[in-house]
Computed example of a mutant assay.
Amino acid sequence: MTLVDFKEIENVTNFFVSPNEIVVCGIPDEDNESHNCDEMGCSYVSHVIARYKLPAVRTEVEWFSQQMEIKLHENDHKGGWENCGIFWLRERLV
């Protein structure tokens, strides 16, 4: 299931993403007798209607991500790309 698919679930009020799962909160169907708050980990504020485990990140991908973050941090003084023209950006790629 993708994040876009969450729009297809009825009665969704919110969802949360942690490093290892996505928790979908909402209002369970009134006729859903199988909903178990204790099992799903519901709080007094919201019902958990679905939990999706995320795959573990490979060691190599995590290392690459850390190296990219270091490089991006070094270049923070340059600002972002928000105000750059599309043609200027294209020329920088080729």
Rank of each mutant, 00 (worst) to 15 (best):
residue 1 M to C: 13
residue 3 L to Y: 15
residue 5 D to S: 15
residue 7 K to N: 15
residue 8 E to M: 10
residue 8 E to D: 14
residue 9 I to R: 03
residue 9 I to A: 03
residue 10 E to D: 14
residue 10 E to M: 08
residue 13 T to F: 01
residue 15 F to N: 02
residue 16 F to M: 04
residue 17 V to P: 00
residue 18 S to C: 07
residue 25 C to G: 03
residue 26 G to L: 00
residue 28 P to V: 02
residue 28 P to T: 01
residue 30 E to V: 04
residue 30 E to P: 00
residue 30 E to G: 05
residue 31 D to C: 07
residue 32 N to A: 04
residue 35 H to E: 00
residue 39 E to L: 15
residue 39 E to T: 13
residue 41 G to M: 09
residue 42 C to I: 10
residue 43 S to N: 11
residue 46 S to Q: 05
residue 52 Y to Q: 02
residue 53 K to L: 07
residue 54 L to H: 02
residue 57 V to Y: 08
residue 59 T to Y: 09
residue 60 E to D: 11
residue 63 W to Y: 11
residue 63 W to K: 13
residue 65 S to M: 14
residue 66 Q to Y: 06
residue 69 E to L: 06
residue 70 I to H: 02
residue 70 I to S: 01
residue 71 K to F: 04
residue 72 L to I: 05
residue 72 L to Q: 08
residue 74 E to C: 03
residue 75 N to A: 10
residue 76 D to M: 09
residue 77 H to Y: 11
residue 77 H to S: 08
residue 78 K to E: 08
residue 79 G to Q: 05
residue 79 G to V: 04
residue 79 G to M: 05
residue 81 W to T: 14
residue 83 N to A: 12
residue 83 N to M: 10
residue 84 C to L: 13
residue 86 I to F: 11
residue 87 F to W: 09
residue 87 F to R: 10
residue 87 F to G: 03
residue 88 W to D: 14
residue 89 L to D: 06
residue 89 L to A: 08
residue 90 R to A: 13
residue 94 V to T: 12
